[in-house]
Structures are given as C-alpha cells and as structure tokens.
C-alpha cells in the first residue's frame, strides 16, 4: 500500500470498497459478457471477410467496435452499479459495513471507483480488439486509429456519467428492479435530449438535470484535425466530470439520509 493511502484511513476504506465492487461485478458472471462483447467485432469481421467494403471498411469496423462498447458498456454500467449498490442495501450487507468507520460518502466513492475501473478495463479490451482489427484489415491507417481511439474515449466518458447517474438512482431506490428500470429510462432520455428544440423557455432549464449524451457521439470527431479533436475530448471530459461530480454529491447526500 502506498504511503499516502496509509496516511489517510478514508482512502484506505474507499480502496477496499472499490476492490470489493470489482470482485462482485466480476463474480456476477459479467466477465463472459464482457469478453463476448469485446470479441463480437472480431467475429463479425471474420464472418464478413468475403465482402469488400473498400475504403469504408475501417469505418465499418470502427462503428462496430464503438457500437459494441456503447451498448455493452451501458448495460454493464447500469447493471453492475445497481447490483453492487442496491444488492448491498437489500441484503443488509451495507448495515454491517456502515456501522463501522466507513461513511456513506466513502461507501459510494468506493463503489464509483470500482465500477469506473471495471468500465476502464472493458473499454481498454474493446480498444485492443479494435486496434488489432484495424491493423489487420485497414493496414497502416494511423489517423483512422486515432479517431477510433478518441471515439472510445468519448464513449468511456459517457459510461462514467452513466455509472454516476445510476449510483444516484440506486442511492434513492428501494429495489434493484426500480433502480435498473429508472436508470435505463433516464439513459434513454439522455440520448434523446438533443431532439428538444431550441428556445429560451425557463422550462428548458430542467433539461440540464440530464446530460446530453449526443455530445459523446464519436461521429462528432469525424473530419476534425488533431488539435480540434483533442479540444473536443477535453471539453467532453469537463462536461462529463461536472455531471459525475453533481450526481455523486447528490447520491452521497441521499445515501446519508437514507434509513438503512
């Protein structure tokens, strides 16, 4: 254990809860799902190798990889978060943990850290498969590779917001079923938020409660040069960080007030 960790008992507790969240998520048989989703593009390209997409082939592979990460990652983010947070509440495991030095905020911070680590591995696995595929099928297309990886970065940011949003709902919900249903509904609404037309009506302020997931669409990277791409990524990271901070703070507040 590193020296800063030893000096800060709260960080030790957050790390312990994070490790336990990862172990629990892995135990939930999410690993096979994780592997299947990461390998799906490989299988698909083998199946489609008789076709020649010409110059558009790299785009097809990238879109497929992004799709696998986006869909699988969202399900993983929602289900793993609900299971590790609501499950502890429903089974009274949280009571045993929270009667110790562990505070509700540390408990949630640990869960968030563990789940983000899990999603990072998931995104890294998909990225590895994607890079290998692009090298194999599209040759030395370094710009295509950069766009593909930046797209994975954008999707990873969306997944971090999804975890924080689900954490917020699970901190309030009384059942895992409600938490999962509500989180999936809100994730869907976040994807549709950009469809609401422009206007200065004050009711539009309510829309700010939900992030606009369209801002994490990898298509936005297409045609951007290196610097513009980096700026877009930075802006998206700041946008995601704002929502993750807001949702996690609200979740900690709700969880503290919750009657265990």
């Amino acid at each position: 254990m590193s020296a800063p960790l030893r000096r800060c008992p709260a960080l030790v507790r957050v790390r312990l809860v994070a490790l336990m969240a990862v172990r629990e998520a892995l135990h939930l048989r999410l690993v096979p799902l994780f592997a299947a989703l990461a390998l799906a593009p490989v299988a698909a390209v083998f199946w489609l190798r008789g076709f020649n997409f010409g110059t558009a082939e790299w785009k097809f592979i990238v879109d497929f990889g992004h799709g696998a990460l986006g869909a699988g990652g969202l399900l993983l983010a929602v289900l793993a978060t609900v299971q590790t947070v609501s499950g502890d509440g429903e089974h009274r495991t949280a009571q045993m943990l929270l009667s110790r030095a562990l505070t509700p905020a540390e408990f949630l911070a640990g869960k968030l850290t563990g789940l983000l680590a899990l999603l990072t591995w998931f995104a890294a696995a998909v990225a590895l498969v994607l890079v290998a595929l692009l090298r194999w099928r599209a040759g030395d297309a370094s710009d295509a590779l950069a766009v593909a990886l930046a797209g994975i970065g954008l999707i990873w940011l969306k997944l971090t917001v999804t975890v924080a949003l689900t954490l917020l709902i699970a901190s309030y919900a009384r059942s895992a079923l409600f938490a999962a249903g509500a989180a999936l509904l809100l994730v869907m609404l976040a994807h549709l938020r950009h469809l609401v037309g422009p206007g200065a009506d004050w009711t539009r302020a309510w829309l700010l409660v939900l992030p606009d997931f369209q801002l994490f669409d990898p298509e936005r990277l297409v045609g951007l040069a290196g610097r513009a791409r980096a700026l877009l990524l930075l802006g998206s990271a700041a946008y995601a960080a704002a929502y993750v901070t807001l949702y996690t703070a609200l979740a900690a507040w709700l969880f503290k007030r919750r009657e265990h």
Binding site: R23, H27, M96
Partner: peptide
Amino acid sequence: LGFLPEAPHFPRF
C-alpha cells in the same frame, strides 16, 4: 461498536 443485523448476508464469493 460492533453490529450484527438480523439475517445477515455476506458477499457469496
């Protein structure tokens, strides 16, 4: 303090 809740459940793994 140490606390044992009613019908405790431990992480199965």
